[in-house]
Design a protein around this nucleic acid. Sequence first.
DNA 1: TCGATAATCTACCAAAACTATGGGATAAAA
DNA 2: TTTTATCCCATAGTTTTGGTAGATTATCGA
Lengths: 135, 135
Amino acid sequence: MLSKKTKYGLKALAYLAKVKDREPVQIAEIAKCENISQKFLESILLTLRRNGLLGSKKGKGGGYYLIKEPHEIHMTTVMRVLEGPIAMVPCVSLNFYEKCDDCPDEEECSVHKLMLQVRDSALDVYRNNTLADLL
Amino acid sequence: MLSKKTKYGLKALAYLAKVKDREPVQIAEIAKCENISQKFLESILLTLRRNGLLGSKKGKGGGYYLIKEPHEIHMTTVMRVLEGPIAMVPCVSLNFYEKCDDCPDEEECSVHKLMLQVRDSALDVYRNNTLADLL
DNA sequence: TCGATAATCTACCAAAACTATGGGATAAAA
DNA sequence: TTTTATCCCATAGTTTTGGTAGATTATCGA
Protein backbone atom coordinates (compact mmCIF):
# COMPACT_ATOMS: atom_id res chain seq x y z
CA MET A 1 0.00 0.00 0.00
CA LEU A 2 1.04 3.52 -0.79
CA SER A 3 1.56 5.52 2.38
CA LYS A 4 -0.40 8.71 2.95
CA LYS A 5 2.93 10.45 3.10
CA THR A 6 3.70 9.55 -0.51
CA LYS A 7 0.19 10.24 -1.66
CA TYR A 8 0.09 13.68 -0.08
CA GLY A 9 3.62 14.43 -1.23
CA LEU A 10 2.74 13.62 -4.83
CA LYS A 11 -0.36 15.76 -4.68
CA ALA A 12 1.57 18.65 -3.24
CA LEU A 13 4.22 18.37 -5.94
CA ALA A 14 1.56 18.30 -8.61
CA TYR A 15 -0.06 21.35 -7.04
CA LEU A 16 3.20 23.25 -7.04
CA ALA A 17 3.88 22.22 -10.62
CA LYS A 18 0.78 24.10 -11.74
CA VAL A 19 1.85 27.35 -10.10
CA LYS A 20 3.01 30.04 -12.50
CA ASP A 21 6.50 31.49 -12.27
CA ARG A 22 7.41 29.18 -9.37
CA GLU A 23 6.02 31.60 -6.83
CA PRO A 24 6.24 30.36 -3.22
CA VAL A 25 3.02 28.74 -2.02
CA GLN A 26 2.17 28.48 1.66
CA ILE A 27 1.64 25.10 3.32
CA ALA A 28 -1.82 26.19 4.44
CA GLU A 29 -2.98 26.80 0.88
CA ILE A 30 -1.84 23.40 -0.38
CA ALA A 31 -3.26 21.64 2.66
CA LYS A 32 -6.64 23.29 2.19
CA CYS A 33 -6.93 22.71 -1.54
CA GLU A 34 -5.79 19.10 -1.39
CA ASN A 35 -7.59 18.15 1.83
CA ILE A 36 -4.45 17.30 3.74
CA SER A 37 -3.71 17.75 7.44
CA GLN A 38 -1.57 20.84 7.52
CA LYS A 39 0.86 19.70 10.18
CA PHE A 40 1.39 16.38 8.46
CA LEU A 41 1.95 18.07 5.12
CA GLU A 42 4.46 20.33 6.82
CA SER A 43 6.75 17.43 7.62
CA ILE A 44 6.34 15.97 4.14
CA LEU A 45 7.30 19.19 2.40
CA LEU A 46 10.27 19.43 4.71
CA THR A 47 11.64 16.07 3.60
CA LEU A 48 11.03 17.01 -0.01
CA ARG A 49 13.07 20.14 0.52
CA ARG A 50 15.83 18.30 2.36
CA ASN A 51 16.06 15.95 -0.60
CA GLY A 52 16.47 18.71 -3.09
CA LEU A 53 13.05 18.60 -4.69
CA LEU A 54 11.66 21.78 -3.25
CA GLY A 55 12.93 25.18 -2.26
CA SER A 56 11.45 27.25 0.55
CA LYS A 57 11.28 30.82 1.66
CA LYS A 58 10.55 31.94 5.19
CA GLY A 59 8.61 34.93 6.40
CA LYS A 60 5.95 36.97 4.72
CA GLY A 61 5.31 35.99 1.12
CA GLY A 62 7.17 32.78 1.78
CA GLY A 63 6.30 29.19 1.10
CA TYR A 64 7.44 26.25 -0.99
CA TYR A 65 8.23 26.11 -4.68
CA LEU A 66 9.64 23.68 -7.22
CA ILE A 67 13.35 23.95 -7.85
CA LYS A 68 13.32 22.14 -11.19
CA GLU A 69 10.85 22.08 -14.01
CA PRO A 70 8.16 19.38 -13.75
CA HIS A 71 9.49 17.45 -16.75
CA GLU A 72 12.86 17.16 -15.02
CA ILE A 73 11.46 15.52 -11.92
CA HIS A 74 11.32 11.76 -12.38
CA MET A 75 8.99 9.55 -10.42
CA THR A 76 11.86 7.25 -9.48
CA THR A 77 13.35 10.07 -7.43
CA VAL A 78 10.08 11.12 -5.86
CA MET A 79 9.10 7.58 -4.93
CA ARG A 80 12.48 6.81 -3.41
CA VAL A 81 12.41 9.96 -1.31
CA LEU A 82 8.84 9.55 -0.10
CA GLU A 83 8.11 5.84 -0.15
CA GLY A 84 11.61 4.41 0.12
CA PRO A 85 12.90 1.51 -1.98
CA ILE A 86 10.96 0.69 -5.11
CA ALA A 87 11.73 -3.01 -4.72
CA MET A 88 9.37 -5.02 -2.54
CA VAL A 89 12.23 -6.98 -0.98
CA PRO A 90 15.66 -5.61 -0.08
CA CYS A 91 17.42 -8.41 -1.94
CA VAL A 92 16.26 -7.02 -5.30
CA SER A 93 16.75 -3.37 -4.47
CA LEU A 94 19.14 -1.32 -6.58
CA ASN A 95 19.66 1.47 -4.09
CA PHE A 96 18.95 -0.24 -0.79
CA TYR A 97 20.27 -3.76 -1.34
CA GLU A 98 20.37 -6.10 1.63
CA LYS A 99 20.75 -9.84 1.81
CA CYS A 100 17.89 -11.88 3.25
CA ASP A 101 18.94 -13.56 6.45
CA ASP A 102 16.84 -16.60 5.69
CA CYS A 103 17.89 -17.24 2.07
CA PRO A 104 20.86 -19.55 1.62
CA ASP A 105 21.02 -18.98 -2.12
CA GLU A 106 19.60 -15.86 -3.71
CA GLU A 107 19.70 -17.30 -7.22
CA GLU A 108 17.55 -20.23 -6.20
CA CYS A 109 14.95 -18.19 -4.34
CA SER A 110 11.50 -18.20 -5.88
CA VAL A 111 10.55 -14.94 -4.21
CA HIS A 112 13.66 -13.30 -5.56
CA LYS A 113 12.84 -14.36 -9.11
CA LEU A 114 9.34 -12.96 -8.96
CA MET A 115 10.20 -9.76 -7.19
CA LEU A 116 12.93 -8.94 -9.67
CA GLN A 117 10.31 -8.84 -12.37
CA VAL A 118 7.97 -6.75 -10.27
CA ARG A 119 10.74 -4.28 -9.50
CA ASP A 120 11.68 -3.97 -13.15
CA SER A 121 8.14 -3.34 -14.24
CA ALA A 122 7.58 -0.72 -11.55
CA LEU A 123 10.88 0.91 -12.37
CA ASP A 124 9.84 1.05 -15.98
CA VAL A 125 6.73 3.01 -15.07
CA TYR A 126 8.52 5.40 -12.73
CA ARG A 127 11.30 6.05 -15.22
CA ASN A 128 8.85 6.92 -17.94
CA ASN A 129 6.90 9.39 -15.84
CA THR A 130 7.91 12.85 -14.76
CA LEU A 131 5.89 15.25 -12.67
CA ALA A 132 4.79 16.90 -15.91
CA ASP A 133 3.16 13.67 -17.06
CA LEU A 134 0.87 13.61 -14.05
CA LEU A 135 -0.83 16.90 -14.79
CA MET B 1 7.39 -3.83 1.20
CA LEU B 2 6.44 -7.43 0.88
CA SER B 3 5.23 -8.82 4.19
CA LYS B 4 7.00 -11.80 5.74
CA LYS B 5 3.69 -13.57 5.53
CA THR B 6 3.68 -13.36 1.75
CA LYS B 7 7.36 -14.16 1.48
CA TYR B 8 7.05 -17.25 3.64
CA GLY B 9 3.84 -18.28 1.94
CA LEU B 10 5.47 -18.12 -1.49
CA LYS B 11 8.45 -20.12 -0.29
CA ALA B 12 6.20 -22.75 1.21
CA LEU B 13 4.18 -23.03 -1.99
CA ALA B 14 7.36 -23.36 -4.01
CA TYR B 15 8.58 -26.03 -1.61
CA LEU B 16 5.35 -27.99 -1.97
CA ALA B 17 5.46 -27.64 -5.73
CA LYS B 18 8.70 -29.60 -5.81
CA VAL B 19 7.26 -32.53 -3.87
CA LYS B 20 6.58 -35.63 -5.95
CA ASP B 21 3.09 -37.09 -6.21
CA ARG B 22 1.63 -34.32 -4.03
CA GLU B 23 2.44 -36.22 -0.86
CA PRO B 24 1.50 -34.34 2.33
CA VAL B 25 4.41 -32.45 3.87
CA GLN B 26 4.47 -31.50 7.53
CA ILE B 27 4.69 -27.88 8.64
CA ALA B 28 7.80 -28.69 10.64
CA GLU B 29 9.69 -29.89 7.59
CA ILE B 30 8.89 -26.81 5.52
CA ALA B 31 9.65 -24.51 8.43
CA LYS B 32 13.02 -26.11 8.99
CA CYS B 33 14.11 -26.22 5.37
CA GLU B 34 13.02 -22.67 4.63
CA ASN B 35 14.10 -21.11 7.93
CA ILE B 36 10.64 -20.02 8.93
CA SER B 37 9.11 -19.81 12.40
CA GLN B 38 6.95 -22.91 12.59
CA LYS B 39 4.04 -21.37 14.42
CA PHE B 40 3.92 -18.43 12.06
CA LEU B 41 4.06 -20.70 9.05
CA GLU B 42 1.22 -22.71 10.53
CA SER B 43 -1.14 -19.76 10.33
CA ILE B 44 0.02 -18.90 6.82
CA LEU B 45 -0.60 -22.40 5.50
CA LEU B 46 -3.98 -22.31 7.14
CA THR B 47 -5.04 -19.23 5.20
CA LEU B 48 -3.70 -20.78 2.01
CA ARG B 49 -5.85 -23.80 2.66
CA ARG B 50 -8.90 -21.73 3.54
CA ASN B 51 -8.47 -19.96 0.21
CA GLY B 52 -8.39 -23.14 -1.77
CA LEU B 53 -4.71 -23.23 -2.62
CA LEU B 54 -3.71 -26.08 -0.37
CA GLY B 55 -5.19 -29.29 0.95
CA SER B 56 -4.36 -30.77 4.34
CA LYS B 57 -4.43 -34.08 6.09
CA LYS B 58 -4.43 -34.57 9.84
CA GLY B 59 -2.77 -37.26 11.88
CA LYS B 60 0.24 -39.38 11.18
CA GLY B 61 1.52 -39.04 7.66
CA GLY B 62 -0.46 -35.83 7.38
CA GLY B 63 0.55 -32.40 6.29
CA TYR B 64 -0.11 -29.92 3.50
CA TYR B 65 -0.12 -30.48 -0.23
CA LEU B 66 -0.93 -28.60 -3.41
CA ILE B 67 -4.43 -29.07 -4.75
CA LYS B 68 -3.67 -27.89 -8.27
CA GLU B 69 -0.66 -28.29 -10.47
CA PRO B 70 1.95 -25.53 -10.14
CA HIS B 71 1.33 -24.21 -13.64
CA GLU B 72 -2.33 -23.71 -12.78
CA ILE B 73 -1.59 -21.49 -9.79
CA HIS B 74 -1.31 -17.88 -10.88
CA MET B 75 0.60 -15.31 -8.91
CA THR B 76 -2.36 -12.95 -9.05
CA THR B 77 -4.30 -15.38 -6.87
CA VAL B 78 -1.45 -16.03 -4.47
CA MET B 79 -0.63 -12.37 -4.03
CA ARG B 80 -4.23 -11.40 -3.44
CA VAL B 81 -4.66 -14.11 -0.81
CA LEU B 82 -1.42 -13.39 1.03
CA GLU B 83 -0.65 -9.74 0.44
CA GLY B 84 -4.08 -8.35 -0.31
CA PRO B 85 -4.86 -5.92 -3.15
CA ILE B 86 -2.28 -5.66 -5.92
CA ALA B 87 -3.04 -1.98 -6.41
CA MET B 88 -1.16 0.45 -4.22
CA VAL B 89 -4.22 2.62 -3.70
CA PRO B 90 -7.80 1.39 -3.27
CA CYS B 91 -9.06 3.77 -5.96
CA VAL B 92 -7.26 1.79 -8.68
CA SER B 93 -7.99 -1.66 -7.28
CA LEU B 94 -9.92 -4.11 -9.43
CA ASN B 95 -11.01 -6.41 -6.62
CA PHE B 96 -10.98 -4.08 -3.64
CA TYR B 97 -12.08 -0.74 -5.11
CA GLU B 98 -12.76 2.11 -2.75
CA LYS B 99 -13.10 5.84 -3.35
CA CYS B 100 -10.55 8.15 -1.76
CA ASP B 101 -12.22 10.40 0.78
CA ASP B 102 -9.91 13.27 -0.06
CA CYS B 103 -10.17 13.20 -3.87
CA PRO B 104 -12.93 15.34 -5.35
CA ASP B 105 -12.31 14.06 -8.88
CA GLU B 106 -10.66 10.73 -9.53
CA GLU B 107 -9.98 11.49 -13.18
CA GLU B 108 -8.03 14.60 -12.30
CA CYS B 109 -5.91 12.98 -9.59
CA SER B 110 -2.21 12.77 -10.34
CA VAL B 111 -1.70 9.88 -7.92
CA HIS B 112 -4.51 7.97 -9.57
CA LYS B 113 -2.94 8.37 -13.01
CA LEU B 114 0.41 7.07 -11.87
CA MET B 115 -0.87 4.24 -9.74
CA LEU B 116 -3.04 2.93 -12.55
CA GLN B 117 0.09 2.36 -14.57
CA VAL B 118 1.89 0.74 -11.65
CA ARG B 119 -1.03 -1.57 -11.03
CA ASP B 120 -1.20 -2.61 -14.67
CA SER B 121 2.49 -3.36 -14.85
CA ALA B 122 2.41 -5.41 -11.66
CA LEU B 123 -0.67 -7.23 -12.81
CA ASP B 124 1.10 -8.03 -16.03
CA VAL B 125 3.91 -9.73 -14.14
CA TYR B 126 1.63 -11.66 -11.81
CA ARG B 127 -0.59 -12.82 -14.66
CA ASN B 128 2.37 -14.12 -16.59
CA ASN B 129 3.81 -16.11 -13.72
CA THR B 130 2.53 -19.32 -12.26
CA LEU B 131 4.02 -21.25 -9.39
CA ALA B 132 5.75 -23.44 -11.95
CA ASP B 133 7.65 -20.44 -13.31
CA LEU B 134 9.25 -19.77 -9.95
CA LEU B 135 11.01 -23.11 -9.70
C1' DT C 1 13.65 48.53 14.73
C1' DC C 2 9.32 46.20 15.56
C1' DG C 3 5.73 43.09 14.65
C1' DA C 4 3.55 39.92 11.76
C1' DT C 5 4.22 36.00 9.00
C1' DA C 6 5.62 31.49 7.78
C1' DA C 7 8.95 27.86 7.60
C1' DT C 8 11.88 24.91 10.87
C1' DC C 9 12.83 21.73 14.48
C1' DT C 10 12.12 18.71 18.34
C1' DA C 11 9.43 15.84 20.73
C1' DC C 12 5.69 13.21 21.56
C1' DC C 13 1.51 10.20 21.07
C1' DA C 14 -2.28 6.87 19.73
C1' DA C 15 -3.84 3.50 16.74
C1' DA C 16 -3.04 0.05 13.54
C1' DA C 17 -0.39 -3.49 11.38
C1' DC C 18 2.94 -6.89 11.54
C1' DT C 19 5.39 -10.85 13.44
C1' DA C 20 5.12 -13.89 15.88
C1' DT C 21 4.04 -17.29 20.33
C1' DG C 22 1.17 -20.33 23.48
C1' DG C 23 -2.06 -23.59 24.63
C1' DG C 24 -5.56 -26.43 23.90
C1' DA C 25 -9.12 -28.81 20.68
C1' DT C 26 -9.81 -31.96 17.00
C1' DA C 27 -9.09 -35.56 13.82
C1' DA C 28 -6.66 -39.54 11.81
C1' DA C 29 -3.71 -43.37 11.91
C1' DA C 30 -1.22 -47.07 14.19
C1' DT D 1 -5.95 -45.45 23.15
C1' DT D 2 -1.70 -43.40 22.18
C1' DT D 3 0.74 -40.79 18.97
C1' DT D 4 0.88 -37.53 15.41
C1' DA D 5 -0.20 -33.40 13.26
C1' DT D 6 -3.51 -29.96 11.85
C1' DC D 7 -6.95 -26.49 13.60
C1' DC D 8 -8.19 -22.48 16.12
C1' DC D 9 -8.31 -18.75 19.38
C1' DA D 10 -6.12 -15.43 22.18
C1' DT D 11 -2.48 -12.43 23.07
C1' DA D 12 2.12 -10.22 23.39
C1' DG D 13 5.91 -7.46 21.50
C1' DT D 14 7.52 -4.52 18.09
C1' DT D 15 7.34 -1.38 14.20
C1' DT D 16 5.02 1.72 11.20
C1' DT D 17 1.78 5.14 10.36
C1' DG D 18 -0.58 9.35 10.81
C1' DG D 19 -0.94 13.09 13.30
C1' DT D 20 -0.23 16.96 17.31
C1' DA D 21 1.95 20.52 20.11
C1' DG D 22 4.89 24.00 20.91
C1' DA D 23 9.01 26.58 20.70
C1' DT D 24 12.37 28.66 17.37
C1' DT D 25 14.21 31.04 13.49
C1' DA D 26 14.21 33.76 9.35
C1' DT D 27 12.09 37.33 6.42
C1' DC D 28 9.44 41.27 5.08
C1' DG D 29 6.87 45.53 5.50
C1' DA D 30 5.96 49.54 8.04
